[in-house]
């Protein structure tokens, strides 16, 4: 995966790549379920991003630690088990300290278990690299993912509620675009953002 490897500081390379070059939302197009489902407002989107960062870092580190003990044909079982453990912990933490957000995210927090971003990083990075690199890869990919969610949510919340982070920012008399709250709005926003990022940043 590391074509343009930076040999001196590989961890930094993995971190930077996750932010944009291999951005989960705009480049790899993985983890689409929460991207479409929880981005109607910025607050739940950021909460989801934070939960994903937590689970991704923890699972990357643990998978990397046990990569030499796991047998090849059992690895998916072990990955899923690790991820499920940390997702359950994240779910409990949200329920205990952010009950309102936990209610809003509903089933999407337990669904992080099947988020292909996390199992993808376990397979592509943590299972082959050391703990240090996996740790920074988790940060990079997690933050990249959160940026993707936040970009979607900012546009959708602005148009659907005329607000950002719950604070109204649009002028008086702005008519809310109700469609942006609905699934259709999620697909529209994602399509337009993908089209724009491909148009302007296509590799020549």
């Amino acid at each position: 995966m590391a074509n343009n490897a930076v040999p001196k500081k590989p961890a930094a390379g993995f971190f930077i790549r996750g932010l944009w070059e291999e951005s989960p939302v705009f480049r790899q197009l993985i983890g689409m379920c929460p991207t479409l489902a929880v981005t109607a407002q910025l607050k739940p989107a950021i909460t989801m991003g934070a939960s994903v960062i937590f689970v991704l870092i923890c699972s990357n580190v643990v998978v990397s630690l046990m990569r030499k003990l796991v047998q090849g044909h059992l690895r998916l079982l072990m990955f899923t088990m690790t991820i499920a453990t940390f997702v359950t912990i994240a779910d409990y933490l949200l329920k205990a300290y952010l009950p309102e957000m936990s209610e809003k995210l509903g089933a999407y927090v337990p669904l992080i278990i099947v988020n292909c971003l996390i199992i993808g990083r376990a397979e592509a990075c943590a299972n082959r690299q050391g703990v240090w690199i996996s740790f920074w890869d988790g940060w990079g990919q997690g933050i990249g993912y959160t940026i993707g969610l936040a970009a979607m949510a900012t546009i959708r919340e602005l148009l659907a509620d005329g607000a950002i982070w719950g604070h109204p920012v649009m002028w008086d008399g702005f008519v809310n675009w109700n469609v942006m709250k609905l699934p259709a709005g999620a697909f529209l926003t994602l399509g337009i953002l993908l089209g724009l990022s491909n148009h302007f940043l296509r590799k020549k």
Binding site: L77, M78, M81, T82, T85
Partner: peptide
């Protein structure tokens, strides 16, 4: 399976 069993026990206990 020893490693899967040990890991399961550890994960279970931490949960």
């Amino acid at each position: 399976s020893w490693f899967a069993l040990v890991a399961m026990a550890i994960f279970g206990m931490s949960l």
